[in-house]
Design a binder for these strands. Structure first.
Lengths: 223, 223, 223, 223
DNA sequence: GATGAATGAGCATTCATTCAT
DNA sequence: AATGAATGAATGCTCATTCAT
């Protein structure tokens, strides 16, 4: 319908903002409320089934006000999800995860533990938006592209370097790095996903469970 | 008018059919075409954004015809997804997976290899419907309930027994069985999901990659 | 839409049947059940909101069966209402009311009493169909025409003669006969309508109430 | 979703407006046109057979506009009929009929004449809406309830008092007041209904005919 | 900046009727 | 005679978006 692909799109704008430094600083109180309501409703019903009128109502603003701040409903979705997508896979840029990837890191085990703890806390804190992200990625090609470029940049870049580093140090077995990364990532994602999404109400001992994950991975990869 | 929660619902009906033996045998040619079109379109746009008129058009039937076979659009979704949900987690009942859970199975390694191969082939074959299932589970409480009851029955039952069996045989380390199952399942799901959903176009050596998964898990759990 | 006005219509057919003597004798059991279900549902929801599929379902026949017996939904309505319209205003033809109009009738009071009793019993017995008739007359011009020709024939004919007869006998005041008829008919219809339609659940003493009506009319018209 | 019976409904809202003082004052020009078109079309085809798209078209607005002003098609019907139902039976509240019920009224005959004249003029002026009201009362339980509560309040209250008053004054015969009211009301309704609904095209001498009604009732009830 | 009335395309669903079996 | 699958137009209603105020 709309969507001239050559003109600069919403995601590019968001990227620029994020890269430039800080994001949407000057959100008015109304804009803030719109975003919060949108998160709630996108989470409950999914993007396609959410209506802007319900978002406006819950935010306590007029319908038109949403479109003053966000050109389309999709822009509203992206303004919620894209920054999260970036923060999820660009912990360096955001700054709350930097030391982990420092190759001077003592051991692979410490690295794993640090990544797990850090990303688990992050996911826990931002669960609703991450959920929306997961729910909408199948339907939004723009999100998917953003996902791949984010992941490629991080995994293809730093993570491979990390794996090579520890393999050269002889700490872990010399698997193809893509396979190796997928192994430990699967276990960590398996834990975080089960913990937060699938069985959030189970009786969890987080510390013990995380330690078991680390032990399992370390054994599995022991050189 | 609709929605009386005490009367037998669509999912219950589908369950009964499946348990009774074979499912929707006598689908007419038109019904078949409706279902295929629905799968295509649900996959592309998601359930909420799919329109019955587009489904009808692609199936080459009148719009009314859909509603002669499926009371509502949701019934159409469930008639596609629920049988798959069941086949995905009830391989025993369906019969294409029985020997795996036989506790006379030689070794945990063989068990893992068998499960992986079997479920990977299954997922590969039924990828579109499984994808729809994954996409819609966040929005359809009925699917979620069905998922939990299916999983609970399988995992809570047979899988725990399997783990205990191999732990007693001393083949694998004595972790809590929920944790142990989650570990190897994460690795297998991580492989299948990456292979089929995330990076289907990458250059994969399936055999080698599956062997790496098995090796990783066996090392990780080695007693 | 359809409805070529020059071809013989459904109502003409029904009229002919009725005049010829007895009506639709050879109704099959299924046709009977269709008619009964139709009466129930037309009564509950009105003709426009009644669906042929619901009628078929309640009658326990296939949808197509209705249209084998009645060309259209409207034909079904007319086959229910038109005979009733005729019986309601042509008591002579039907035969359960003849002596009333016999001008040899003893007194106006007896005449009134006889009409009231007779039509009250009739209305009570055929309440559902009469109700449908009243409900649909505003929307079906064919019914309205039929109503006027039935009434004109009866009222304009016999009733006027009756009034003139009793006025000449000096029993009642010499009002224009249209006015006179309207007066006593209003009171009788007021009673029957209130009794059966408006307040059917009130605590009625029918005999006493009817006598009051007669008394009121006789006083009102006393010469 | 809708239909919670405990939350205040449309009719309650309309009641409150009417009682509070004046009704739908600030109707926009479009809303006015919607209402007028709706009246025309409900009158012609009945509520069930009227389509919102035709109403919109005749009003010269978009179909969606109707639903901005009236939540559902039924709300539109009620917003037309309920105020009329109330004005029809609550002449006191509205103010155009007050002196009639003043028990200081000179004679029963004057009272009758005043009621007849007043309600006849009212019915004549608001014929279309009253017709819709009559047509839809059989199908709308909410209207029926409103009717009974309106009537009960007026008849059960003031009218009974009036009858008792004139009976005590010895002007009229001591019938049960319910019967007495039904008698004269039947005659008046019989006249107004015949005059406006059944035979509007006949050659009527309204003044003479009304006087005949009064005479008939006064004779019928003369003490 | 904020509003909310207005839009009209689009939606899922129902309908009376037909027709091959 | 009876069926019931098939039709496609029509229905009431919702939606994202626009724009005059």
């Amino acid at each position: 319908m709309n969507g001239n692909p050559s003109e600069p799109n919403e995601i590019d704008e968001l990227m620029k903002e994020l890269i430039a430094g800080g994001p949407q600083k000057k959100m008015t109180a109304k804009q803030q409320r719109i975003m919060e309501s949108a998160i709630e409703i996108f989470l409950e019903k999914g993007f396609a089934a959410a209506s802007t009128s319900e978002i406006a109502q819950r935010a306590g603003v007029a319908e038109g006000t949403i479109f003053r701040h966000y050109k389309t409903k999709k822009d509203l979705l992206f303004s919620i999800t894209v920054p999260m997508l970036i923060r999820l896979f660009q912990p360096i840029a955001i700054g709350d995860f930097t030391p982990v990837l420092d190759t001077a890191y003592a051991s692979f085990e410490d690295f794993l533990r640090s990544v797990l703890k850090n990303r688990y806390d992050f996911a826990r804190k931002h669960l609703p938006v991450i959920r929306i992200l997961l729910q909408e990625i199948p339907f939004q090609p723009e999100l998917r592209e953003q996902f791949f470029s984010s992941v490629a940049e991080q995994i293809g870049g730093r993570m491979t370097a990390v794996m090579v580093h520890f393999q050269e140090k002889g700490e872990i077995v010399p698997l193809p790095s893509a396979s190796a990364i997928r192994m430990w990532l699967s276990v960590l994602v398996g834990f975080v996903g089960t913990r937060l999404l699938i069985l959030p109400d189970a009786d969890w001992d987080d510390e013990a469970e995380m330690e078991r994950c680390i032990r399992f991975i370390m054994n599995g990869m022991k050189a």
